[in-house]
Design a protein around this nucleic acid. Structure first.
Length: 491
RNA sequence: GGUCGGAUGGCCGAGUGGCUAGGCACGGGUCUGCAAAACCCUUUACAGCGGUUCGAAUCCGCUUCCGACCUCCA
């Protein structure tokens, strides 16, 4: 494919991407609810949309990337129905809700930094946009598409569906929703206030013990579960913007409600493209607290989890995520992670060889034009990163062949190789070499150790040289003796 | 129950009418003090049963199994 195509959930088709405004793209991605430490499920979406953003930037677009922090709302399931998730956690920990939110926002962002996800252009918080949300609710009420009951405001789905299609995104039909088996046992608070079971809250009246609450035209309360994204995306990207992203689990009701609210308030659909990534599984099973198979990102980085045999670095994680297409499920397992780690290391060490590759003026035996075009067309095909990575392995193979003197390249081919690595691997995929100890003197210290070991080798003191190699390996440093000298890397 | 996805070799994971993706693991080899790396060779899979077709992992039907969502979730 010659141009970027994306699968638009709205139309269930692959569509060529064209921006609403020339050379500018607005992206809104649903961010985390910050009430717990980041787990593996938190990592996929950000990486996927980071690649999309980086690819658009490479193509010359100016991208405004908005990813919110949800620090209010969302009800707790289980026995604590109706209670605010953040408030609940706060009671447990005896902390201010905002303190909890801050702690986990920091934890989340620290993970984002480590896996090389670019910071959002704007990272708005729900609690910082109560006014915008209230104003939007008022607009919807004025249009006759929401109603107030006992200090709560509900979106009138039936009234809305008279003029617009409720269910455009999820393909859900109102009649089917009414049947809604499976959840009948869950009696939700305020259900009897609604005119119709499908109506959803825009604003909820807060009980006295509810910690997070704000004044509103309808009394003290807090915003509903979907309105924040509508209000903040409109504020920062406009009423109609390019791309809205999120996990498939948010498709219904969250995104469906967003579309309904925004359309009600602004008389137009909010986003042109809706992009949804699939979920992750652990050893083929859904990751869930009840199954006891949840893995926190920190546990992965430290190797501290019963399902993991060792620690896996941030780039291994990123590489692993990109080795699967974003719309398929991604299965985490120790074996799969080990495979990803090995593959990523091999690719990395090949890439390190490029700058020293010899070139010839004529009679070169290979080039990389085909690799270049296949990487570009893979990315254009709905961000097919696994295919792009396969091509990067082909590039690695060719680099190694040239390095071994079995094939030759021109200087132009070498430049192409460098461009591919710089612009596409580092730039778009965001896969950067994990530099072990740059700037902290580790590299210098290692040079000293390795030169001493080189001396031992020259003396044929194999016992000593092997001892040094083994000891370093135990500490996570791998030593490789090549023809051009000894190299090392951090495992 | 409703809606929507899946099932690919030992593991992960692309592809989607004819041309054995790729990674990891396994086995053999070259190289090497040994190891690692690198390179070469090797391993022909698409849940089952029917159908369409010159040809199907790819299209259609049925069956089995798995999963997601259906007002907590990334």
């Amino acid at each position: 494919m010659n141009t970027l195509h994306l699968y638009n959930t709205l139309n269930k088709t692959l569509e060529p991407f064209t921006s609403i405004a020339p050379k500018h793209v607005g992206i809104y991605v649903c961010g985390p609810t910050v009430y717990g430490p980041p787990h593996l499920g938190h990592v996929r979406g950000p990486i996927v949309f980071d690649v999309l953003r980086r690819y658009l930037i490479l193509q010359g677009y100016k991208v405004r990337f908005v990813r919110n922090i949800t620090d209010v709302g969302h009800l707790v399931g289980d026995a604590d129905e109706g209670e605010d998730k953040l408030a609940k956690q706060a009671k447990v920990e005896q902390l201010e809700p905002m303190e909890v939110a801050q702690t986990y926002t920091d934890a989340y962002n620290s993970v984002m930094d480590r896996i090389n996800v670019m910071k959002p252009s704007i990272e708005p918080r729900a609690t910082g946009h109560i006014i915008e949300q209230i104003e939007m609710i008022q607009t919807i009420i004025e249009k006759g598409l929401a109603y107030e009951v006992n200090g709560s405001v509900y979106f009138d789905v039936m009234a809305y569906s008279q003029q617009s299609h409720y269910g455009v995104l999820s393909g859900r039909v109102l009649e089917d929703l009414q049947a809604g088996a499976g959840n009948q046992s869950r009696s939700l608070e305020g259900q009897d206030e609604k005119r119709n079971p499908n109506d959803f809250a825009l604003w909820k009246r807060a009980s006295a013990e509810h910690i997070m609450q704000w004044s509103s035209p309808w009394g003290k309360g807090f915003p509903g579960w979907h309105i924040e994204c509508s209000a903040m995306s409109a504020r920062y990207l406009g009423e109609h913007f390019d791309i809205h992203g999120g996990g498939m689990d948010l498709l219904f009701p969250h995104h469906e409600c967003e579309i309904a609210q925004s359309t009600a308030a602004h008389d137009r659909a909010p986003a042109k493209y809706w992009i949804h990534h699939n979920m992750i599984t652990i050893n083929g099973q859904k990751m869930a607290k009840s199954l006891g198979n949840g893995i926190m990102v920190e546990q992965l980085f430290k190797g501290e989890h019963p399902l993991l045999s060792q620690a896996f670095g941030p780039m291994t994680l990123r590489f692993f995520v990109l080795q699967a297409h974003y719309r398929g499920t991604l299965d985490f397992s120790n074996d799969a992670l080990l495979a990803a780690q090995k593959g990523w290391q091999r690719m990395q060490s090949a890439f390190q060889l490029v700058s020293n590759l010899p070139t010839v003026n004529e009679g070169a035996t290979l080039d990389v034009a085909d690799v270049f075009s296949s990487i570009v067309s893979s990315l254009n095909d709905d961000l097919n990163t696994p295919q792009a990575i396969a091509s990067f392995f082909e590039l690695s193979r060719r680099i190694n062949l040239v390095n071994d003197g079995k094939e030759t390249i021109t200087a132009e081919t070498k430049t192409s190789m460098q461009q591919l690595i710089q612009d596409y691997c580092k730039g778009v995929l965001g896969l950067i070499p994990e530099d072990a100890g740059a700037g902290d003197g580790l590299s210098d210290a290692m040079d000293i150790i390795l030169s001493l070991r080189g001396q031992a080798k020259a003396d044929k003191n194999w016992a000593l040289s092997d001892q040094i190699r083994d000891a370093l390996k135990e500490k996570g440093f791998e030593i490789k003796d090549g023809k051009e000298g000894t190299t090392w890397n951090k495992l």
